[in-house]
């Protein structure tokens, strides 16, 4: 059911970078609203996330950010009331809400990004530009669970020998330290042996190729071109001033004309693109099933 996971890592990365770029830098309220809704829809349809605990985290954060801005920023010309002699202005309140929408939206996009771009996909992308670095990251990622397992083994062995098994606090700390020291030397030795094996197999020599499981298909190509065209439309509209919006000193009137509508529609399509892909695939699935 997660059609977006099948998209080529490069195409997915282009999409995420484009949508987050717009979400981070263009603060027009409509853009921010679409960014948040698109990210939330993506989260929900992909089943990417535990809705209850997520709401418990994002809603308080949203309220906190929305409150901080008017309390600390006293710009704007329309005071609503005074707090400790400082004006709380309408502009600051509205800007705070937009800021909260923006931050929540970006966090949700980051969350989607982490779910879709698993470490193997990230390393596949990084491997072309910085091979040594991505090799190191992938080794480190593999070491973490291995170390955790080894740590359990070492401490079980220590306990089995009857060492450091008393309940006293100092004894337990000394035991933990001993396990840790054993771990460090074991892991470093292990890493050095890995590197010897790599050298023996010719790592870093000329003409070696890397295995990759991903293929850039026509669908990925269409997806990337669509993303880039929509991004160009949004940035072009922004550069031409179609969606200029000011919060300070006075909130600018949002006039909707053909130009700004086109920009908003482009971004809405962009933000909901993963959602639409998921829905399309889900419908296809349902349609095929019902015919059987």
């Amino acid at each position: 059911m997660k059609a977006f996971d099948e998209i080529d890592p490069v195409a997915a990365a282009v999409y995420f970078v484009s949508v987050m770029l717009v979400g981070m830098f263009i603060s027009a309220p409509m853009i921010q609203l679409f960014s948040l809704l698109g990210a939330a829809a993506f989260c929900l349809i992909g089943g990417r996330g535990e809705i209850k605990s997520d709401l418990g985290f994002y809603i308080p954060m949203f309220i906190m950010i929305a409150l901080i801005n008017p309390l600390f920023s006293h710009n704007g010309v329309t005071p609503l009331f005074f707090l400790n002699g400082n004006p709380v202005t309408l502009e600051a309140v509205i800007y705070g809400i937009v800021l909260a929408v923006m931050m929540t939206g970006i966090l949700l996009w980051c969350r989607n990004f982490t779910k879709v771009m698993t470490s193997d996909k990230l390393l596949y992308i990084m491997g072309r530009a910085v091979p040594a670095l991505s090799l190191t990251v992938s080794m480190a990622l593999r070491f973490v669970p291995m170390f955790k397992r080894q740590m359990k083994k070492v401490s079980a062995a220590q306990k089995g020998m009857g060492l450091y098994s008393s309940k006293s606090y100092t004894d337990r700390i000394r035991g933990a330290l001993r396990v840790f020291a054993a771990m460090v030397s074991w892991s470093l030795e292990n890493a050095m042996e890995t590197s010897c094996a790599m050298k023996a197999r010719g790592y870093g020599l000329k003409g070696r190729t890397n295995f990759a499981i991903f293929r850039f298909t026509l669908r990925d190509c269409i997806f990337t071109v669509t993303t880039l065209l929509l991004l160009a439309a949004v940035i072009g509209g922004y550069a031409l001033g179609y969606i200029d919006f000011y919060y300070y000193p006075r909130i600018s009137a949002a006039d909707i004309n053909a130009g700004s509508a086109a920009v908003y529609v482009s971004f809405a399509v962009m933000a909901f693109l993963p959602f639409m892909i998921e829905v399309k695939e889900a419908l296809k699935w349902k349609y095929f099933v019902s015919k059987i």
Binding site: L135, T136, A140, V144, N190, A191, C196
Partner: peptide, 15 residues
């Protein structure tokens, strides 16, 4: 490769 492996395992240990 030795330095890379060393770096990777130190990073993994601190993580």
């Amino acid at each position: 490769t030795g330095e890379l492996a060393l770096m990777a395992s130190l990073a993994a240990l601190s993580a």
